[in-house]
Design a protein around this nucleic acid. Structure first.
Lengths: 245, 245
DNA sequence: TTGGATTAATGATCTAGATTAACAAGCCAC
DNA sequence: GTGGCTTGTTAATCTAGATCATTAATCCAA
């Protein structure tokens, strides 16, 4: 399947310079595109999942629900993200992934990806690099939930979404369409919905953001970053040893 | 440096069957052992770090401190863990790692590891596998902090420590030496120290654990698991394609 | 052995944020 | 367009857990 021009390519080329030949190998791998309906579960808590699924378009969440009914969202999934990591390395999934909108993905089996790694080892490193991004995102999420105040949490989330959406060409310098409801954001940030709503208003009152329906403008990104103590990730492409590049 | 018999080997062989030749390649890579003093910082927030550092012995924490002085511990580092992931893939570290006890590690540069991956692609996959474990651990941490009640958080932490220490031969069926102070656990779980102390007592009163100084016994592991909704990770070693095994 | 630092154990407030409830406003499907 | 869902907004109450303060117990290092 052709990958060019898609969010997926934007992400992969961040990881590593891909040569035409590499691109061809990848395209050969992704034999099919899959469309997932709104509210459809892609990965199910307790079931195995052995694929790498690159999101071309649409939004999803990865979450866990506890007995009490409380839901913790682990990650907001955007175009360009990979579904199937780290779950593919375990025998059963410990969380669920559900699409929030209609979503299109391009899929390959973990097995065929592993085979590719043996032929072209750089793809093993690309996977490690994606994993590193994933882990760093989770780590930031822990800091956010564990030790930031609610208003800081939300500021951080909005900045992170803006950065991630920018990377795949879905945000302008200061604006983006927020594809998530307040309930989703509350469950991501470990807050109640009414409280998230209040905190959102505080950001508006302090003139840090303005909203128009779900369209968000970061009116004072500097102040937001300072409030949230936001540190953009320094994305270093994998440095290949000289003799190989 | 010989790796046999160490916690590091215990972890690596979980990921993948290592042949004698693989072991030799690895040992060639780890040219030196490093000793880190108590309270010494191994990775510093804001500085680059380009090594993989396998902990043979001793304990450490990975954390971030915010302006407010609040500290969030991201991970409790035990023997057999790898320091330097995911930080090695970014240009500067977003957290600090500090040793809590004297610690010995065996170290190799990221660059030499990458070279090895080109010669023997399975090591790229081993790295991805370690990354998957790391990410899964972080994800569990998010659920813990975000949506579990304090007593459940602590129960979950104790079970996780027991499982991880068991994997490297540092726990019996029901007992282990808790190498962390209450302050450390509080900062890992997003709680205040007095509250952690109270919650610890609740676990004792409910006869789920008994403690003698820092020696912990899980007197009713089943009840603890149920309380915490603990799910041990199903660790699937990387399945090699048939034609390669 | 002593004196200082770290750690554990409690108690007394106080407040941030959950909970519950109710209602308004969009948005779709029919 | 209408009725029903989903989403957003607001208010009143209540409590879990932070904060602050103090003491007791350990652990070391001089």
């Amino acid at each position: 399947m052709p990958l060019n021009g898609h969010a997926v390519m934007a992400r992969l080329t961040q990881a590593m310079k891909l040569r035409a030949a590499d691109l061809a190998s990848l395209e050969a791998l992704f034999e099919r595109d899959v469309t997932v309906g709104k509210r459809e579960e892609l990965v199910i808590h307790g079931s195995p999942f052995r694929s790498l699924c690159f999101v071309k378009d649409g939004y999803a969440i990865r979450y866990r629900v506890l007995r009490s009914g409380r839901r913790q969202i682990l990650k907001l999934i955007l175009p360009g993200d990979v579904i199937g990591f780290p779950v593919s390395f375990f025998d059963r999934s410990t969380y669920t992934v559900v699409a929030l909108t209609e979503m299109t993905c391009t899929v390959c089996s973990l097995e065929s990806y592993i085979l590719l790694c043996y032929e072209q080892p750089q793809f093993g490193l690309v996977l490690s690099w994606l994993a590193a991004q994933e882990a760093a995102g989770y780590a930031e999420h822990i800091v956010n939930i564990g030790r930031r105040r609610p208003i800081e949490r939300l500021a951080h989330l909005l900045l992170e979404l803006h950065e991630r959406l920018s990377q795949v060409g879905r945000a302008t310098e200061t604006r983006f369409d927020l594809p998530f409801s307040q309930e989703i954001m509350a469950d991501a940030l470990g807050l109640s919905v009414p409280h998230l709503n209040r905190v959102m208003q505080q950001l508006r009152v302090q003139r840090l953001i303005t909203t128009d329906a779900r369209r968000i403008e970061l009116t004072d990104a500097t102040a937001l970053q300072s409030l949230a103590q936001y540190e953009p990730l320094g994305l270093a492409p994998i440095a290949l040893p000289d003799r190989l590049s």
